[in-house]
Amino acid sequence: MRESRTLRWARPVVLGLFALFTVLPLYVMAVSSIKPLKDVQGRFTWLPTHVTFRPFVDMWRTVPLGRYFVNSLVVSVSATACSVAIAILAGYAVSRYRFAGRGTFLTTVLSTQMFPGILFLLPLFLIFVNVEKYTGIRLYGSRTGLTITYLTFALPFSIWLIAGYFDTIPRELDEAARVDGAGPLRTLLRVVLPVAAPGVVAVAIYAFMTAWGEVLFASVLTDDSTRTLAVGLRGYATQANVYWNQVMAASLVISLPVVVGFLALQRFLVHGLTAGAVKS
């Protein structure tokens, strides 16, 4: 296919503009995190007057960022672990068995993904409050309640992704294990799962990202002692006098592990996510 001259000329310009649009906030975040306070309190400058790493030290003292970090980490890791385990079981059932209700299950689970969160929020809040009233189990304002909530958020796509990954693993492997006398669960754990390890890691990263970035439910279902980063950082940025250099430093630290994890596994994740979206 020959390329018109306009296209050859337009490509670098258009792609350059997209790149600029994408990079600007990332640049602002990075450069502001190494600025002294007076730089972010005056007119914006593209470079710091002098480079300082103080914001990365001070940010832990201005707000209880460490506590938010621990809360986010505990909730996200537990939610990830649970949802990966549940998704592996469900994904195996969906991939290896044809049973009545299979289609209904998949459609229902996937469609909950598309419902507005606000729809579940009010009833869930009420249910949590009342569960505590009648059983004494503390869900509202606890990390347990948030963990249970988050594990279901990643579940639909996780099941979808992992079932898709299991589909690529030949059934002959299962059958060989069966012939050797292994039951279905042992087959799954000892034979299929090790082969599916990259898929499991990708699902785990996806689940972690979902929990790590969630805002709406965290803003209602947590209290002062269980605040996650998502709510804590917003609280920080809505104060009258904001230390923007510290907020940017904190944002950088919060974002980096997730972005690195995503990019490291982008090939697989991207394939799974787009396939999930396109096929559904």
């Binding site: 997209f18 970035g213 950082l233 940025a237 944002s251 974002s255 995503f262 990019l263």
Partner: peptide, 18 residues
């Protein structure tokens, strides 16, 4: 181009807020 998609939403929006 993928980075905005991978970034936690609240850090991205807070940066824009700034």
């Amino acid at each position: 181009f993928l980075i905005p998609y991978a970034l936690p939403v609240f850090t991205a929006v807070i940066t824009w807020r700034f």
